[in-house]
Design a protein around this nucleic acid. Structure first.
Lengths: 118, 118
DNA sequence: ATAGATATATAGCCGTTCGAGGCATTGGTG
DNA sequence: CACCAATGCCTCGAACGGCTATATATCTAT
């Protein structure tokens, strides 16, 4: 029996995107915004009011670790994945793709509808 | 430039599942719960406290239409898609798959990680 | 009779996202 | 120089959706 996939998976899209971006390399907030915007092909914008609370939450949960960089004029807070964060990312990513496949199967009949209905 | 896909798409999973179930045939609430549970392979449970407010919302938005059936001992409220509901479903479904593909691409590197990290 | 499945619905809580702001620095243009 | 856009971090309140718990009532099987 597969795992249950409810609200946490339905929402967690933002968390997944941020975690997967940080899995590539450490980043600071503003860079993360750009990264998600770019790698999503301009489809997804992470608002600052979403991003920063999210990062703080991830840090509280021990999934990321942060460090201030004061050497330049602009204060930057770099974030990197912890080992726990990486494990969580992999687990969540697998659950999400499972959910996505599941929903895709449910939508299959709908998506066969001809174009005039769009 | 593709459409923007933000929070509404990230959450909208439940709406999509319910609308796609109703696209097959009219159903009443309890039947819908079973249907989603079954067609998701037991992965997704739609709680009653989620389903009924959702259905009322869809009706307020003119995406579904309801009719009471009092002929049997058990009161049943049948729901069916409206023309608007069907159009919305098709549009949302396309946007969702676009978003899912997008996120899947972002997750691709993560999902190559060997099993010991799960 | 009693429990469990069927059937709809609301109330309260909590977490997430958004929009609107605040604050400060840097770089470029007129 | 004055100004503005971009960079960079952040918080707050409103809106919304999902969850749990609860209420109510009928039907079926033991």
């Amino acid at each position: 029996m597969p795992a249950k996939l409810n609200a946490d998976l339905l929402r967690g899209g933002m968390d997944l995107m941020v975690l997967s971006a940080l899995a590539q390399r450490p980043m600071y907030g503003y860079l993360l915004q750009q990264s998600v915007e770019r790698t999503s092909g301009g489809r997804v914008t992470v608002q600052a009011g979403t991003l920063y609370p999210l990062l703080h939450r991830l840090e509280d949960d021990g999934l990321v670790r942060s460090r201030w960089d004061e050497t330049t004029g602009r204060r930057r807070k770099w974030y990197e994945l912890t080992a726990d964060g990486r494990k969580r990312l992999v687990r969540q990513a697998r659950q999400w793709t499972e959910f996505a496949d599941c929903l895709r199967r449910m939508l299959a009949p709908v998506l066969d509808v001809p174009l005039e209905s769009a």
